[in-house]
Simulated scan of single mutants.
Amino acid sequence: MPVVDHGPRGKARVALTFDADLTALMRRRLVNGKVHSYYNKTLIDELRTMHVPATMFLTGMWMEQYPDVTRQLAADPLFELGTHTYDHRGFTKHCYTLGTVPRADMLTDVRRAVVQLDQLDSHATRWFRFPGGCYDGTALHELAPAGVTAVGLDVPGADGFAKSPAPIIKQVLSNARDGSIVVLHMHGGDNAPYTDEAIGPIVKGLRTRGYQLVTVTQLMKG
């Protein structure tokens, strides 16, 4: 299974990527009303207003919850969509608190998300992101038949469970370099409550520094 990591690519470019996580626990919080939504529409509206290309990695469970939104994102020429497993479990042991996908289920899990995305996006990419960035040789071997390419990152945006926008902005602007892949989250809710407030200053700051914002595909093309 091929793996793409960051690296300088000619012009000064940075790829902003956004994960849309949804787990069984998060879905229960939706059902019981503890969380109104795990789709941060304000964030997406900001990206559109600022004309920011971006790559979104969607879990299968998130696509099940928001099929119409997935179609809308797929139809927007600014964005490209990839997959992020079915329910955001880890592909190694001890991957934060995500739980673990059994080895025998790894391929089925990823293929399930790929099939879902293909049903909603006629030009879906085969970009894929491991939950938590956790993978090893076993995971790569098991997923090889899925035909996906794992996309790494070098700038975690620190927006998960953030208490304010400020540390998110500082984290990205302090660490982004030519060829960087930044990961933030588009599900909002109680898991990433300040990403929409941070994105404007992040985009402005990166552009002021001379970076062109691109999708993962554009970054890889150089």
Rank of each mutant, 00 (worst) to 15 (best):
G10H: 00
L184G: 07
H185K: 03
A158V: 12
Q72M: 04
A113C: 06
V183R: 01
E80D: 09
L143E: 04
L117G: 14
E46Y: 05
L140Y: 03
W62Y: 10
R209G: 15
M186C: 15
R112I: 12
M61S: 01
D159E: 05
T59D: 07
K170M: 07
T85Q: 06
A74P: 15
V101A: 01
A192Q: 02
G205Y: 01
R27A: 13
V182N: 01
R112L: 09
N40M: 11
G189K: 01
M1T: 08
G157N: 07
N32G: 09
L30P: 10
A20E: 15
Y194D: 10
G33W: 00
K11W: 06
G152T: 02
L78Q: 01
E64T: 10
V3H: 04
I181Q: 03
M186T: 14
D154T: 12
I202V: 04
T215A: 00
W62N: 10
R207E: 13
F57A: 01
L184Q: 06
A146H: 05
K221H: 15
T97L: 15
Y38P: 15
G82P: 14
A146R: 07
G152V: 09
G222V: 09
R89C: 10
K41Y: 14
D159V: 03
L120V: 12
N40A: 14
F91Y: 00
Y135F: 11
Y39R: 10
I169S: 12
T97R: 04
A198M: 05
R89Y: 04
L25F: 04
G99D: 02
E80M: 11
A24D: 14
P102Y: 11
D45S: 12
V214W: 06
G33R: 04
K93F: 04
F91H: 00
G147Y: 02
M63C: 13
I202Q: 01
F91G: 00
Q116N: 10
P8E: 12
D159L: 05
R27M: 09
H187V: 04
R112T: 15
L78S: 08
T97G: 12
Q218T: 11
L25V: 09
G147S: 07
P156R: 01
H141M: 08
H6M: 14
V69R: 05
Y66N: 06
D21L: 02
T125G: 10
M63R: 01
A158Y: 06
R13P: 11
A176V: 08
A144K: 05
D21K: 00
F128G: 02
A144E: 15
M26S: 08
L140E: 08
Q171G: 09
V31Q: 11
L16N: 03
L25C: 07
F130V: 03
A54H: 02
T217Q: 07
A54N: 05
D109G: 12
T59G: 07
F130Q: 04
W127S: 13
M186F: 08
R209T: 08
A124C: 09
T125S: 08
L213A: 11
G188Q: 10
L206T: 05
T70W: 05
F79L: 07
G189A: 06
A12V: 03
G99F: 00
H84E: 02
T217C: 13
A158P: 11
L143K: 04
D136W: 00
V110T: 11
T208C: 12
H187W: 01
P102T: 08
H36I: 15
G133Y: 00
Q119P: 12
L22C: 04
D19E: 11
V35G: 15
R71T: 09
